[in-house]
Computed example of a mutant assay.
Amino acid sequence: MNITVFCSANALDERYTAPARDFGRLLGAQGHTLVWGGSHAGLMGIVADEAKAAGAKLVGISVELLSHKAYQGADELVTTGDLAERKAVLLARADAVVVLAGGLGTLDEVTEVIELKKHGLHVKPIVLLDTEGFYEGLRVQLARMEAEGFLPRPLDELVRFAADPAEALALLEG
């Protein structure tokens, strides 16, 4: 399976890096391909290093703006002209999407793929790895949107939340 991973390119502490390492290792060990933002920095680099070490194929989708952070060990590296094009290619190359901890870019990516799924433009599973309750606020907001009629489909048809890397992969495979 081609698994697109959205996550931070920032250096973070161990409570976020450890699950990223575990997820990358499991992804590779289970024979999946990592499709990601193509960076060597932060969680992006950690997931890529671990996935590669575990035997995964790496497909990086970088952007000209950030080409200086491109991961040099990718099996394939695509450079797009802008962030919108990168998001489109990341989704197009995905069989599934997993979201690790991240900042505004990651939030932008996940809300876009959920919105596209809401409109039936794809049916790919989307799983948020809720490390340390990082996405609890988003989960609460999405549940409120569902309860108050803002979502035309049940929330669990749009996105799932996982407590750990093994559960995230199990939700994709099951």
Rank of each mutant, 00 (worst) to 15 (best):
M1T: 10
I3C: 02
T4P: 09
T4A: 01
T4N: 10
C7N: 12
R15L: 11
A18G: 04
P19A: 05
L26K: 12
L26Y: 07
L26R: 15
G28V: 01
A29D: 02
G31L: 00
G31V: 00
V35S: 10
A41L: 14
A41F: 01
L43H: 06
M44Q: 13
G45L: 06
I46H: 06
V47Y: 13
A48G: 08
G55Y: 05
G60C: 07
I61D: 10
V63G: 05
A70R: 14
G73D: 14
G73F: 12
D75K: 05
E76I: 12
T79H: 02
T80H: 06
R86V: 08
K87Y: 01
V99I: 13
L100N: 07
L104M: 15
G105T: 05
E109D: 15
E109R: 09
E115G: 11
E115C: 10
G120S: 06
L121Q: 13
V123I: 00
K124Q: 10
V127Y: 02
L128H: 02
F134N: 02
L138W: 00
L142P: 03
E146R: 05
E148V: 09
G149C: 07
G149T: 13
L155Y: 04
L158D: 02
F161L: 07
A162C: 06
A162L: 09
A162E: 12
A168H: 05
L171S: 00
L172E: 04
L172P: 00
